[in-house]
Amino acid sequence: MSDALNFHFDVDGENFTSAGHASVKVKKILRELGLDPETIRKVSIAMYEGEINMVIHAGGGEADVSVDDKGVTIVLKDSGPGIADIEKAMEEGFSTAQENIRSLGFGAGMGLPNMKRYSDEMNIESEVGKGTTITMKVYF
């Protein structure tokens, strides 16, 4: 793989039950590319958590995934409310999700921590009222 392979997805913010659609597609693509199962698992979980966050908090957004000879890069971009205190948001157990989200099994305050856990590098750019862009890299 000398050239990077790029994939773009729109994440629908209206339909919570279809959240994870992009991550499941990416998982399938990475399998077809023959990547090792642990890399696929890390990318899938990190991206799914990000996708869920975009649906819960930001009304959807866009996901771009690229694969090159070094690893997988995931860029999640939304125009949501932004994260006021990133350090706080990174704490396990801290959540601003509503009760209806919690009843579905989400909103445990583990999303961002899991994204960090499963990516080798993670960068968050966020501005309150403007939106959030998260870049995650998983190396081979």
Binding site: T17, A19, G20, K27, I40, R41, S44, Y48, G105
Partner: peptide
């Protein structure tokens, strides 16, 4: 339905 997605992604 999210259980299916989690099961798939967590393998």
């Amino acid at each position: 339905i999210n259980v299916v997605a989690v099961a798939s992604l967590a393998d």
